[in-house]
Design a protein around this nucleic acid. Sequence first.
DNA 1: GATACCATACTGGTATACCACAACGCTCGA
DNA 2: TCGAGCGTTGTGGTATACCAGTATGGTATC
Lengths: 219, 219
Amino acid sequence: MPEPTLHARLRAAILSLDLAPGRPLSERGLEPEFGASRTPIRAALMRLESEGLVRRDGKGWIVAPIDLDEIRSLYEYREILESASARLAVERASREDLEALADLARLADADETPEHSIDAGTGFHLELARLSNNDFLIDAMAGVLTRLYRTRWLEVQSAESRERAHREHRAVTAALLARDGASAELATIAHLRGTGERLVASLGESSQRLRATGINLGN
Amino acid sequence: MPEPTLHARLRAAILSLDLAPGRPLSERGLEPEFGASRTPIRAALMRLESEGLVRRDGKGWIVAPIDLDEIRSLYEYREILESASARLAVERASREDLEALADLARLADADETPEHSIDAGTGFHLELARLSNNDFLIDAMAGVLTRLYRTRWLEVQSAESRERAHREHRAVTAALLARDGASAELATIAHLRGTGERLVASLGESSQRLRATGINLGN
DNA sequence: GATACCATACTGGTATACCACAACGCTCGA
DNA sequence: TCGAGCGTTGTGGTATACCAGTATGGTATC
């Protein structure tokens, strides 16, 4: 296995909350931690900036904070992308592709580590986007999922929300397999809207309580 | 006026077709042409890569070619984004904002240089996206417009297509001002679908004839 | 004349030294 | 004791030297 690139390692550190949201990053400061020199670190930071995981703060860098308004916009945007994906998937995906997606939704059931649950959910939604067969839609969904990844540490805390997600994923795949575009769109929107609202609610409730779970919004 | 950044200068050179699609770029080769050293040139190239204007080709760089399938996907993607923008604009934009947009569509009438026409069209669509009040939607639309910018040198060649665009823009703004979301969506989709199909058709027709107009697809 | 091989001249990738600027803190003077 | 000014330290921005890999062209040999 090739060792992960610097970009991938930095990315993983941010997504795992190992590098806390809002934390200032200095190019030289990351040199010892990641065993690389400024040039590739700079390149990685610039790339992470375009992914929305890192941000310029004045002249310096910070790990992108988790902002409530941004999450709201992101879910609205995602609803546009994902409902369109569902509609296109109904028109274009093969039966095999749809069944593979349904398997993803079904297999996600079992007892999982929170991290597995996050990755399974991300995988499901990304795979759905792939079925649209539109590379720009796929890339956009990948970007959204990346930007939302850290907030999902919250969602997967409760077994109930994990089960709800799986149930709703199965509802989406059922509509897709039935080639019912309108239902697939509606099921997708229902899933996202519910998830988004619960997430925003729990984020808005108290950033104090979140810090107790090890999650800091960074703002 | 501050002098344009290196990124902006490279970007302008690509969008104006001064750097032909498909042309190989070497970091060192750009040094004398742009009077900068490799480090900032490299940074600019990485940024342009994330905007889709430059691409890695093996180990090297090339100006992104203009690919027919990509244009098709882009228009499909854009239809998703822009119809959603129109719908959101109907819900959210103030009367003043909508009238300002209508002004943009109206003022674009006059005799213009092709470049002005392109920028006016880009401005109109970007402004429409802004009225959605969703930053991600806005950024995505900006990205789409950037990626499509070079193809618009074709559209503005004919006075007839310029006039059609203006007319269709006015139809969109009329629906927006009437607060008729469904009509606004439909007018937007009609505009894009027609424009996209004509563009793809003329691109597909003959890349030979295009080269005569100074446009090379780079593939 | 054809082919194989080697030298050379590129490529991007990396490490690092230097620059200007900004913020912080200490020191010196009132 | 308080305040102002200056120096030290750290920031990103840039220029450049060096590295390893690669493709290419010329030459020498068969």
